[in-house]
Amino acid sequence: MEKRLGLGKEKKLSEAWKVFDEFIYKCLNLKDENNEEQKSGLVSSLTREGQGGTSGDSRKFITDTLLNLMIAGRDTTSTALSWFFYLLAQNPTVEKNIRDEIKKHLGGGKWESLGVKELGELVYLHGGLFEALRLYPPIAFEHKSPSTADVLPSGHVVDEHARIILSFYSMGRMEGIWGEDCMEFKPERWFSSGGGIKHEPSYKFTAFHAGPRTCLGKEMSLIQMKMVATAILYHYHVELVEGHEVCASDSIILQMKYGLKVRLFLININQAS
């Protein structure tokens, strides 16, 4: 009824959608006018031949994809970082190791920007973020319904009216999947034997979903989280506010019910041991 009459939240949603479309189409028109020769980048990859979605309209496909990236990545990224810093505050040794790694690979902190190459060298930071995502996945559970009757690999028959609940939160804490130390915050879990980053199948590490439903913004969100975490940890030591209760809220996204209250202590990275 609100949508039909243009009232309340539906009115705000329609107005916001209009503003977003105007902004995106303005950027696309500007790109066309400049006749950019650059063939790489998100927009260029989305506008290449065959990227029109089910509608066949490439511009609508681009706006829908960018809207999905913005909405899906806002609360999930902030939630992942909150749980990451919560775990670091409980594991000061891990925080120190990450800070030492940043100091080793990024030097004196005079970097004007952080690129994919520099952030890719921070293996301990990567492991810490992935451990936070394993223990506290922003999307804690998903539900699936088959379009037609099917049989699961386990042999269970699923009809078209069934609904399957996938608890990513539980899967990240199962001994049968992650071993006896599944409840430990252990960044080393993500180290390869050669000292690089260890890959785990997406059907095992489900924080970014798997298969055709893999998160479109996976790499972008990882870069964002690494940038924020690096900038904060390089300059500050994080401590939880004494007495502050940290628990998950009852929502689709695994946010903290009362937020994360911390104290930041400015450090001198050159003197940190």
Rank of each mutant, 00 (worst) to 15 (best):
Y203C: 06
D250M: 07
K9V: 10
E101L: 03
D250R: 08
K144P: 00
Y136T: 04
L28K: 05
Q255C: 13
E121T: 08
P146W: 10
V158G: 02
F141W: 14
Y86L: 09
K31S: 11
F85Y: 14
L233N: 00
G53C: 07
L87W: 02
V158Y: 02
P146N: 12
K60F: 02
S170I: 03
N34V: 09
W111F: 11
E33N: 11
S14F: 10
G259V: 09
N270L: 10
H244S: 13
L114T: 09
G194N: 10
P212F: 12
L135K: 01
A132R: 03
F191A: 02
K261E: 12
L30F: 07
E2F: 10
K18G: 05
V151Y: 06
I269A: 09
S78K: 06
P187A: 05
G217F: 06
A132F: 02
P153M: 07
S147P: 00
E112F: 08
S193K: 14
A162H: 12
V157P: 00
V19A: 08
L114Y: 13
C247V: 14
K257N: 15
I253M: 01
S14Y: 01
I267R: 15
A248N: 06
I252R: 10
D100W: 03
G127C: 06
Y258H: 15
K110P: 01
V158R: 01
V238G: 01
L233A: 03
E101V: 04
R59Q: 10
C215S: 07
F61M: 11
G50L: 07
Y169K: 06
H244W: 15
F265H: 15
I164K: 05
I71E: 05
R263G: 04
S167Y: 03
N270C: 06
K9C: 00
F85M: 12
G8Q: 08
R263F: 05
L233V: 08
T230F: 03
L166W: 02
K204M: 14
E121H: 06
A231S: 15
L129N: 00
V158A: 01
L5I: 05
S55V: 04
K60Q: 14
I232T: 09
K117D: 11
R48M: 13
K261I: 01
H209Q: 13
V158E: 01
V123W: 01
L13P: 02
I24C: 13
N97K: 14
I177M: 08
N34A: 15
L87V: 03
G52P: 00
M227E: 07
G8V: 00
H156V: 14
E200N: 04
H237W: 04
K12N: 10
K60A: 08
M183T: 09
E2Y: 08
T230N: 08
